[in-house]
Design a protein around this nucleic acid. Sequence first.
DNA 1: CGCAGTATTGCACGGTGTTGCAACAGCGGG
DNA 2: CCCGCTGTTGCAACACCGTGCAATACTGCG
Lengths: 156, 156
Amino acid sequence: MTARAASERAPQPAEPAPWASVRERLRARGLRWTPQRRVLIDVLAASTGHVTGSELVDRCRAVDPATVPSTVYRALDVLEELGLVSHSHGHDGREEFHILPDAAHGHLHCTRCRRTWELPAGEAAELTIGLHDARGFSVDLSHLSVGGLCADCRGA
Amino acid sequence: MTARAASERAPQPAEPAPWASVRERLRARGLRWTPQRRVLIDVLAASTGHVTGSELVDRCRAVDPATVPSTVYRALDVLEELGLVSHSHGHDGREEFHILPDAAHGHLHCTRCRRTWELPAGEAAELTIGLHDARGFSVDLSHLSVGGLCADCRGA
DNA sequence: CGCAGTATTGCACGGTGTTGCAACAGCGGG
DNA sequence: CCCGCTGTTGCAACACCGTGCAATACTGCG
């Protein structure tokens, strides 16, 4: 039966370390563990990459139809403080949440095809360092979102 | 005085060339000159720097109480195509319009004090060139908005 | 000057997020 | 095991912005 080769990230209910400790992390801050937050955590644990706010609201509603948007958004604020998600604004100003940011990075999004890519810190280093030296400005890479045309769309 | 050095593009107050020719520029494209657009142009000509969409709506309403938001936003779209304004998204995803962009440039905004600064193309050159070379991605500088902490707020 | 054609307007409605507030419910203590 | 403190929720209302659609009014033309 599938032996121990389970390390191959397969059927995985996706519930690794970070999410498991959320409850304790909340308690440690005097914050509370509620059914609504549990739902959101479940949804997040089952998602990856980028999601918009309303998308998360929808998914939560799928689990618990009684879900209310404001609660989800407020819960996301809390989780952002814990560093479990980060958000930035897409081309249209809509919120995009980034789940479990493994490393600070920005985003690149094509104005035409709307695809997005991650922008590792390294590629933005000269900008961040330059601004830091020249102006004392400390860039928040996770909120950085660079718009433009991707290679494919430039061709067209 | 200052002789022919007039080439130094400065003296005009708030109603220089660009706005005066808007009507012709619209006509040249088969677009129309309407009272609503005139109001917006007046408002824009009297403003400088950055303004949010709703701020413009308010100012237009001050001139003509019958102003409707959707009309203003659509007019702004048109003016953006003419290159008279450009917009980007502020820290909160709200639209920020930049009037009469003299040169492509991005924005820097402090997450704490909410002040914003312009980011001249030069300072972002390494980023834009780097992305162009490495990924064939062509950055749209005018939509670039970099968040973070300004020197003052970093101190605090 | 009046007409026809089409760009625009106004309006109503939809989507995404935020906020104030009263009621509720975790969580620790007695 | 019940109590109370305080963090949270749900609701309702609001703000900002976009869009579909029918009515309107610029514009160029005859």
